[in-house]
């Protein structure tokens, strides 16, 4: 594995490398060099199995992290190739020519994250959300609770209590609140 990482380092700009387990490694590469390295890994390094392609929304950094999880049948090693792409107008090159099921993941990412894969077949078809009009729901800023409250009705008559507040009300209602500090400038 060390040799492979060295090799990858020689080929592309290796932004990060991490080993999670003996059989699970992660590398981060540049967006422009991704297709090249994936093709190399598939054709020459035995990473022929694409287990999945997924995205993580790094809202705070304004990025999406794409993860291409590859697997090598002969060494039994999983290699996750990470790529960071901009969150605004997110776009990525398609890998459907490398793996015939790649388009499926790309269609899903388009629907659930709003990441476009321009050349990918059927990428704009709906996947699980026919007739969805909100923002792509897997984005971090999609507020599930707010959507749920707006869309569905709550069962009437439910109420709850905070034990600490309730005990205050019952036992020491008259205990004074903390005094306000009187400062000079206020």
């Amino acid at each position: 594995m060390e040799q492979l990482i060295k090799k990858i380092k020689g080929m592309v700009h290796l932004r990060a490398y991490g080993k999670q387990r003996d059989d699970l490694h992660f590398v981060t590469v540049d967006k422009a060099q991704l297709e090249m390295i994936l093709a190399h890994l598939k054709n020459y390094e035995g990473f022929t199995h694409l287990a999945f392609l997924q995205a993580v929304d790094l809202l705070e950094e304004g990025k999406f992290r794409l993860i291409y999880m590859l697997y090598n049948y002969s060494t039994n090693v999983n290699l996750g190739v990470n790529v960071l792409i901009d969150r605004d107008n997110a776009e990525m090159n398609s890998i459907h020519k490398l793996w015939a099921h790649g388009w499926q993941y790309q269609r899903e990412l388009h629907e659930l994250f709003g990441i476009d894969f321009p050349d990918s077949p059927r990428v704009h078809e709906s996947f699980v959300l026919e007739g969805w009009e909100e923002m792509p729901p897997m984005r971090r800023d999609f507020d599930t609770l707010e959507y749920s409250n707006r869309t569905f009705y709550q069962r009437p008559g439910r109420s709850t209590n905070d034990p600490a507040e309730y005990m205050k009300e019952k036992i020491y209602k008259n205990y004074p609140a903390a005094p306000v500090i009187r400062r000079d400038n206020e």
């Binding site: 999670q20 387990r21 287990a51 999945f52 993580v56 993860i67 999880m69 999983n78």
Partner: peptide
Amino acid sequence: GQTYVKAESTRGEHGFYMVSDGSEKPRRVF
């Protein structure tokens, strides 16, 4: 951190990819 854990279901490779960001809730689970 991020990890991928897989097991053999009757249908084949069944795996969970999980990302944590140090909080009490997972950042992403696939």
